[in-house]
Design a binder for these strands. Sequence first.
DNA 1: ATGACAACTCATAGTTGA
Length: 264
Amino acid sequence: MKIATFNINGIKARLPRLAEWLSETRPAIACLQELKTADEGFPEADIAALGYKAIWHGQKGFNGVAILADARAGLSLAEVQRGLGVAGPGEDEGEQARYLEADVAGLRIACLYLPNGNPQPGPKFTYKLAWMAALRQRMAAIWAAEVPAVVLGDFNVIPHDDDVWSPKAMADDALMQPESRAAYARLLADGWTDALRTHNPRGGVWTYWDYQAGAWPRDHGFRIDHILLSPECADRLVAVGVDKAQRGREKASDHAPVWAEIAL
DNA sequence: ATGACAACTCATAGTTGA
């Protein structure tokens, strides 16, 4: 069973690329981030026409997450919860649409778009760390439920220096601050397995390339999209990869899809 | 040291992203 995550950077602008990718790779489960649309703007009919059921948690203009399940494979999809209960920084302090959890074909799937946190220090970085603390609590609850689980999405954390083309260029970025890395490392210390890292222990694999400064042609990327596996899933991990070619297409997202194949 | 690129919005300039 192939389970994938893809920060699509706008589902309206990216629908042609998303349709191509789904048709070409047919993941059983696809988690999407940065829908950048309110709930009513989600292209449900287009997704259904591609053979996918979907649930989504939208927000106008920014954020937004969705979980897709292959309807042609007959997969069930039932929402468990949306949101972690963390109020965002800013005037209204409302919660942002960054977390969606569902049961899909006997698996617990948590799709997330973790706050970027820049600039740091500042309220956005404080929000990022608070969000990571809440995520850890939620993942502990999933762990306690003893269901096979996959927690995946755009974590906005560069875990190691070998996960970025230039640690020096990114040194002041929220994505690789010691506090960000420590919070991510705590998830792994809790027992979750970083699927891509397991198969690429020396790093050097990117999932994001900036639109600016020729980052893509120069291969100036880094790894921030992650797939974390519960022990049952980690034991059954057979392959993991990045659909890097997607990043080179016309009107591409700045992220590439990441997937894991689990033998269930 | 700066800016570059893209998507979105009560748009035609400002915000956010990473």
